[in-house]
Computed example of a mutant assay.
Amino acid sequence: MPDCKWRWMPLPLHAGPHPVTQFRFGAMTTLRMASFNLFNYAVPGIFWHEREGGLTYEEDQWDSKRRWIAETLAVIDADIVAFQEVVSVEDLRSLVVQAGYPHFASVTEPRFLKNDADVFVNSTVAIASRHRIASAQEIKTFDRIIDQTLLDRAATYSRRPLRCVIDCPDLGPTVVYSAHFKSQGALFNDEIVDVIEDWDTRIDTFFVERMFAGIDQVSKRAAEAGALYLQVREDLKADTEAPVVILGDLNEGPRSHTLSILTQADPIFAVGSTLWTDVPDAHRFRRYTHRLYDAYALPPHAELERPVTYHANKRASILDYAIVSNGLNPANPRHRGAVVRHEVFDAHFDLDQPRRLTSDHAPVIVTIEPRKDEPAQP
Score class of each variant (00 low, 15 high):
Cys164Asp: 09
Thr108Met: 03
Ala238Lys: 14
Ala242Pro: 04
Ile261Gly: 07
Phe349Glu: 02
Ala136His: 09
Met33Cys: 15
Val107Ser: 13
His283Met: 02
Ile192Thr: 05
Ala295Glu: 02
Glu58Lys: 06
Ala128Cys: 13
Glu252Ile: 10
Arg7Glu: 11
Ser35Gln: 14
Met28Pro: 00
Ser178Arg: 09
Phe207Val: 09
Asp143Trp: 05
Glu369Ile: 01
Ala295Arg: 04
Glu197Phe: 10
Glu58Asn: 07
Glu109Gly: 03
Leu259Glu: 01
Met211Gly: 14
Glu197Lys: 07
Ile323Phe: 06
Leu31Asn: 05
Asp60Gln: 12
Ala213Asp: 09
His14Ile: 11
Ala82Ser: 10
Ala302Gln: 06
Ser88Arg: 05
Lys114Asp: 10
Pro19Thr: 04
Thr367Val: 09
Val165Thr: 14
Lys220Ser: 15
Val366Lys: 01
Pro330Leu: 08
Ser88Met: 03
Arg202Asp: 04
Phe104Thr: 09
Phe269His: 11
His290Pro: 02
Thr174Pro: 14
Val86Gly: 05
Lys372Tyr: 00
Asp152Glu: 12
Leu31Trp: 10
Pro161Val: 06
Phe269Val: 10
Ser129Cys: 12
Ala282Cys: 03
Thr21His: 12
Leu236Gln: 01
Pro44Met: 01
Arg130Gln: 04
Val121Asn: 09
Asp281Thr: 10
Phe120Trp: 15
Leu150Phe: 13
Leu92Glu: 09
Phe83Asn: 06
Ile133Asn: 13
Asp63Met: 05
Met211Asp: 13
Tyr310Met: 14
Ala312Leu: 12
Thr277Trp: 03
Pro333Glu: 02
Pro2Tyr: 15
Thr277Asn: 05
Gly54Gln: 08
Val324Ile: 13
Pro267Met: 03
Pro280Asn: 01
Ser260Asp: 00
Glu303Trp: 13
Thr30Asp: 03
Arg221Asp: 00
Ile166Ser: 06
Gln264Lys: 13
Arg160Leu: 04
Leu247Tyr: 04
Arg315Gly: 00
Lys5Asn: 11
Ile69Asp: 06
Thr263Glu: 00
Arg371Leu: 01
Ser158Lys: 01
Gly214Lys: 11
Phe112Val: 01
Leu319Arg: 08
Ser129Glu: 00
Glu109Arg: 07
Asp167Ser: 13
Gly327Phe: 04
Ile261Asp: 05
Phe142His: 03
Phe112Arg: 00
Gly26His: 11
Ala126Cys: 11
Gly185Tyr: 03
Ala27Cys: 10
Ser325His: 08
Asn329Ser: 08
Glu59Ser: 06
Phe36Tyr: 15
Ile368Cys: 09
Pro10Val: 12
Arg93Phe: 04
Phe212Thr: 06
